[in-house]
Amino acid sequence: MKSTKIVDAKGLSCPMPIVRAKMAMDELQSGDILEVHTTDKGSQADLVAWADSGGHILEKELNEDDVFKFWIKKA
């Protein structure tokens, strides 16, 4: 999947993954894809709920070598 922007939030703990995602999302246009990488254990649930609340679409998520990856399409 082609990402418009990638946020590397690996190693960052709560609440930074969603704070960084929000800051990056603010700079994108509707329909753009934001890719987020995290390692915080709670961040998976956090990002899914965050995307849902903003009306964004979680296109894909996967867990590779303890890194959570998300592709979120901006509403």
């Binding site: 709560c14 609440p15 969603i18 704070v19 929000k22 956090d46 965050w50 903003g54």
Partner: peptide
């Protein structure tokens, strides 16, 4: 932490 999380929610 809660306040900053809420701000990230817009």
């Amino acid at each position: 932490i809660i306040a900053n999380g809420a701000a990230a929610y817009g």
